[in-house]
Design a binder for these strands. Structure first.
Length: 331
DNA sequence: GTAACATCCCGCCATA
DNA sequence: AATATGGCGGGATGTT
């Protein structure tokens, strides 16, 4: 059993936390062996109560770092709003160093690189972080060589990655090393389609986590959280604007600036996300799933799947259902 | 597959 | 003067 531990500072529902974890979670679901699961996932945060496990992957949440006795096989440091602050907290940095020194493999996503750099373990090594923070990383940690153009950088056992999609790429690379190219490609096929438009240009790109969202735009992130839990509600721009006490025009504009995608795109993504989890995670009828996720009809859901994933919900369920539930997997 | 219909969302500009 | 906001038009996109 390969243990993967992700540390987040703190956990919010951001893609740099969920994305890489989902890669490993799907790898677990695709395990051909019947008894062993290739990855055991744990998510931890420095403050009790800040762990969110609602992202649809099986997580064993633990609070605080000090109680984690044994270093994992792979240690991942997530980025996000609190990462740069965590890098200034000596207690947190000490705990991270203790784990990172002994873990055979260490990876960072986005601004998670700041925490790793603060431990001193990156001194004399090459690294990368989110493009908007590369300069700051180099200034704050002069002993680290920052490569601003890289998507992800591997130096010894240390892996650093740029933005959100880069974190997913990095996780895929680790899975590929562990289980081969075929497994990694199968996972990529499922995940990557969510991040690309049919034409190939990036739809939900790195600036989802761009700097602006550190505290000033907190309201949009909490709204996004509410939306995730109320997919069947009216999530039109007009309704959301009213909830945020803004005019529709201004709401749409500022939502885009804060979240990196337009309200409509964001809603669509949340609904597809929830639907594909319900499809692969249980056997509820499509009609029920469509209703739960806020698709007016099963036909609407079908079109949305077809448009964004190039596959019908029925086929999606058949293809990605975990091995333990599948009738008979064919090679 | 098509068509009618609804909603989204971005540029432009006036206003605060 | 400079910036944020709100209304409008209408092509693009999504829904039924």
């Amino acid at each position: 059993m390969h243990r993967v531990l992700m540390l987040a500072f703190p956990v919010v529902q951001t893609l740099d936390v969920v994305g890489p974890l989902e890669v490993f979670a799907h790898a677990s679901g695709l395990a051909p062996a019947s008894h062993t699961v290739p990855y055991e996932l744990t998510l931890a945060a420095p403050e009790a109560g800040s762990v969110a496990t609602s992202c649809g992957v099986p997580l064993h949440a633990s609070h605080g770092f000090a109680e984690i006795a044994d270093p994992p096989d792979t240690l991942i440091l997530a980025g996000g709003p609190g990462a740069r602050a965590a890098a200034r907290d000596p207690a947190i940095v000490d705990e991270v160093r203790r784990l990172a020194e002994r873990a055979p493999r260490v990876a960072t996503v986005c601004t998670g690189a700041f925490v790793l750099a603060a431990t001193g373990l990156l001194d004399g090594r090459r690294a990368v972080t989110h493009w908007a923070h590369c300069r700051r990383l180099g200034e704050r940690f002069p002993a680290v060589t920052v490569d601003p153009d890289a998507i992800f950088v591997v130096d010894g056992k240390f892996h650093t990655s740029a933005g959100v999609t880069a974190g997913i790429d990095l996780a895929l690379a680790l899975v590929e090393r562990d289980h081969g190219r075929a497994t990694a490609l199968t996972i990529a096929r499922e995940l990557v389609v969510f991040l690309k438009r049919p034409g190939g240009q990036s739809q939900f790109s790195d600036h989802l986590l761009a700097d602006g969202g550190e505290a000033r735009e907190e309201r949009f992130h909490t709204l996004g959280d509410w939306m995730r839990r109320h997919l069947a509600a009216d999530l039109s721009v007009e309704a959301l604007a009213e909830r945020a006490a803004m005019s529709p025009r201004n709401f749409a504009r500022r939502f885009r600036a804060a979240m990196g995608s337009t309200p409509g795109q964001y809603v669509q993504r949340l609904r597809l996300d929830a639907a594909r989890r319900l499809l692969t995670g249980g056997d509820a009828p499509a009609q029920e799933i469509a209703a739960l996720c806020g698709f007016g009809t099963v036909e609407t859901m079908r079109l949305a799947f077809q448009r964004h994933l190039k596959i019908a919900p029925r086929d999606f369920r058949a293809r990605f259902r975990p091995a333990s539930v599948a009738p008979s997997p064919d090679p």
